[in-house]
């Protein structure tokens, strides 16, 4: 399945936690077929935004649309989203193969056995495919987490610190898989503190500071310099 959607858009998006604004009046677009780097220091509102884009959290104000339709948490919308969060979101007692097969069944992935085998091979876990995940290193579990998110070939791929624990080979594999999903037409949102790696992948950037947008646009030139200018120096 190749996503053909136009974009994921947010308009006037805000989220309040206990009288504290985690995100304020955000307008932004995440076009299909692009990787948007979501950048900002701790507490900038990146994970809050990811939560609302994933439908796990409801906005306090504003709205999110996907292909012009309000992004609600209906099964049809949920089925179009792949999400990698801070945790691996896997089942420890199940093997890598069983984890992917379980989620694949929930998504109704066609030719599931073949798809699971292909993904496990691609993320380099073929030899460990039948071992319980609770015995995996963090990096191995993270490889499987990325495979889980990509399993249903989502139209929207949300990646919140997807490179956690990955070794050099894992970084190469993960980057390749993320770029391929982008090339297939998905709107990819990538939040990471690894600016160097993010710069090699991102087409656009959205920078946040204290819950507000400080930059949105294409990545041209040095992403780290742009980040220093818009986020760090502005904060100083």
């Amino acid at each position: 399945m190749s996503p053909t959607g136009q974009a994921l858009c947010v308009r006037g998006l805000g989220r309040i936690y206990d009288d504290h604004y985690a995100l304020v009046g955000l307008d932004a677009t995440f076009p299909a077929g692009t990787i948007t780097a979501l950048l900002g220091p701790n507490g900038a509102g990146k994970s809050t935004l990811m939560g609302m884009l994933s439908t796990l959290a409801r906005p306090s104000e504003g709205e999110v649309t996907l292909d012009g339709q309000p992004l609600d948490d209906s099964p049809a919308m949920r089925g179009r989203i792949g999400y990698v969060g801070h945790r691996t979101m896997l089942y420890g007692p199940l093997s890598a193969r069983e984890n992917l097969a379980f989620f694949g069944r929930l998504y109704g992935v066609p030719d599931l056995t073949g798809r699971v085998d292909a993904l496990i091979t691609e993320v380099g876990l073929a030899r460990d495919a039948d071992r319980p995940v609770e015995g995996f290193s963090r990096g191995m579990a993270q490889r499987l987490t990325i495979a889980r998110a990509l399993l249903p070939e989502p139209a929207v791929l949300l990646l919140d610190e997807p490179f956690t624990g990955l070794d050099q080979d894992g970084l190469v594999v993960a980057s390749r898989m993320i770029a391929r999903r982008r090339d297939a037409g998905a709107a990819v949102v990538l939040a990471s503190h690894d600016l160097a790696l993010t710069a090699t992948l991102a087409d656009r950037a959205l920078m946040l500071r204290r819950g507000r947008k400080v930059f949105e646009g294409p990545v041209e030139g040095d992403l780290a310099a742009l980040y220093r200018e818009r986020v760090e120096e502005a904060a100083a």
């Binding site: 994933s54 099964p75 949920r78 089942y91 420890g92 989620f103």
Partner: peptide
Amino acid sequence: REAELGAFAALVLSPAD
């Protein structure tokens, strides 16, 4: 089991009823 590694989020984000 869902709470241990955060699989609850993946479970409720799936399109399953």
